[in-house]
Amino acid sequence: MSEPTHHAHTVVHPKVYAAVFGALLLFTALTVFASSLELGVFNAVVALAIAVIKATLVVLFFMHIRYSSKLLKLTICSGVFMFLVLITMTLTDYISRAWGLW
């Protein structure tokens, strides 16, 4: 093929899966614990940060992206990017509406 499509297919060892599994459970416990603390706005920030870390772990290891081609990595990034565009561009309207007219 005209681009390097061939990647040796990596078989991920169960130990890696088990480690990721443990980390995910740990982060779940952590996020529940963090929610019981009084952190103000940072409650949301911490909870979302932990969620992003957990999701990244799942994508990288359970979904094999760490061992995949650049194309797939780029594909995921573009999806996340468009999702952020949808949210931020919509929010530009909602946030700046409060500033009133000129």
């Binding site: 996020t31 529940v32 929610s35 019981s36 603390l37 009084e38 952190l39 409650n43 949301a44 909870a47 979302l48 932990i50 969620a51 957990k54 999701a55 799942v58 994508v59 359970f62 979904m63």
Partner: peptide, 20 residues
């Protein structure tokens, strides 16, 4: 796994972040 990821975000957004 993708369905799992969606839940990973739903759980804090719907249950946790306003606990306090």
């Amino acid at each position: 796994h993708f369905v799992d990821i969606i839940w990973i975000f739903l759980f804090p957004l719907l249950y946790l972040i306003s606990r306090h």
